[in-house]
Nucleic acid binder design. Structure first.
Lengths: 262, 262
DNA sequence: CTTGCCCACTCGTCTATACGAGTAAGCGTG
DNA sequence: CACGCTTACTCGTATAGACGAGTGGGCAAG
């Protein structure tokens, strides 16, 4: 019922100039931080908090929306408001494109996820020729049209990443790269077989809030940012041979890089 | 002053099952994306939208809060709701710690910002010995106490980054590293003079919503995530000699890395 | 026992109203 | 002219009430 078994939450300070809904949010946040509410656990319902604090329902909802914006909790219609569990993270190491990882038949994503004991899936595969965006065209050195390879990655049924690779048509057209499944070692192995020995990659990283589109595709909870990574692959002649545009659910990733001190 | 000069915003679709406040948010978002409202420009006031759509004020406020959560707009008490301007971005290149950048007397941050024509400041300098957190201790190889160097970076008066460096006491105590100003080339130059020739750095990158503390320190608008970067510096004997924990306003940064294809 | 309905509880959406407080411009007074 | 007050407009906070819709347990009918 309504008791809240006391203790967990304090009282409001009517003399404080801090808004009531912020005080409530503060108390809930602190209770979560201290582990009084554990991951996945249900917070008191709106009605219970209304009674406990003696405020109106909209005020309680306002506090919840603060915590949602911080990514701390999420609401489930008909069930309650829950402490958002931290999902298992994928670690991307800076040697993830090393040739030695390119031997196997399966993609790096599948191999890595299997090893970590999760269930990987790749999804919404689309391969088609299209007009290059301004940005992609610049990065690839003024190409008009490109081959675009789109796919979505899922771990244990949860979408975690959406990626599009762009390749110049003069390189990719009519090769296995234009096939839905490019074969063992992925498109980097195919590029090298086609004479484009890879020299290095450049990665640009941004973080921002997702667009409504990205919220849908990645089924993102509110308060979860995305990591936007743009990788350009260069062959040994210095030519940009691929641009890969990736949007990742930020709560599912840690990126890791090694830099020489040179 | 209610007209809204029409045209900019459409009508609601009462047959749609999309919530009214979402429809309003959609229309405002689209108008912003199409440039009908430019950066820094004021959106119609709550009262104007109430009249235009024939809904209650809370509904309009609800749409604004959606857009705020997406980082698209920000409200200013007494003035209005504005399209959030994209701030100038700092680009961090992967060679930013190369020795050749370490010659000058000023810190890399100052030099770079001056070159970009912005006005840099460094702030809330604190240098003190303290107990190492579990995480820092692990990264530095089981040290108990560390020297902590904290500072905040500002561009044109806006805080963009807050960083803390941790160094083992046996390396840093009693050296210029323990001084507020460690001298030309920064602490990396001092570490090398002390015989710890740097070999490489490891960087871990996460993105998440800021804590209330970070919102204060970085004066973050709502809907702006942070990039959390943890760098470990290794000397040529393979010892971790520094851990630097950095929290950056995500809208002010692009990180850039080069990876060998090895 | 199984099926299906009902009900209680949950959050979602929306209205209407009230007062507070920050901002900026106009206007009158000294 | 300069200062301070008033006023209109802005968003911020809070209340009270209504209805809708998803969820899950209990109970009654088959």
């Amino acid at each position: 019922m309504s008791s809240l078994s006391s203790g967990l939450l304090g009282d409001l300070d009517p003399t404080s100039d801090r808004a009531v809904f912020r005080q409530i949010a503060d108390q809930l946040r602190e209770a979560i931080d201290r582990g009084r509410f554990k991951e996945g656990e249900k917070l008191p319902s709106e009605a219970e908090l209304v009674e406990h604090y003696g405020v109106s329902r909209m005020t309680v909802r306002n506090s919840f929306s603060v915590l949602q914006g911080e990514g701390l909790v999420h609401a489930e219609h008909g069930k309650g408001v829950f402490v958002r569990p931290r999902p298992p993270v994928r670690r991307l190491a800076s040697d993830r494109f090393a040739r030695r990882h390119r031997e196997q038949g399966k993609s790096a994503f599948i191999v890595e996820a299997d090893a970590a004991g999760s269930h990987p899936q790749v999804d919404s595969l689309e391969v088609k020729e299209e007009k290059a965006s301004q940005d992609v065209s610049t990065r690839l050195g003024s190409v008009r049209r490109v081959l675009a390879r789109r796919r979505r990655y899922l771990l244990d049924g949860r979408p975690v990443e959406f990626a599009t690779s762009y390749l110049p048509l003069d390189i990719a057209r009519g090769t296995p790269i234009a096939e839905p499944n490019p074969g063992p070692g992925g498109i980097y192995a195919r590029l090298e077989e086609l004479g484009h020995r890879l020299d290095h990659f450049e990665e640009e990283i941004r973080a921002r809030m997702p667009s409504p589109d990205e919220v849908r595709t990645l089924r993102l909870a509110s308060g979860v940012p995305v990591i936007h990574l743009i990788r350009t692959a260069f062959d040994q002649e210095g030519r940009a041979v691929e641009v890969c545009d990736t949007v990742m659910a930020a709560d599912a990733y840690v990126l890791s890089y090694q830099l020489p001190a040179t």
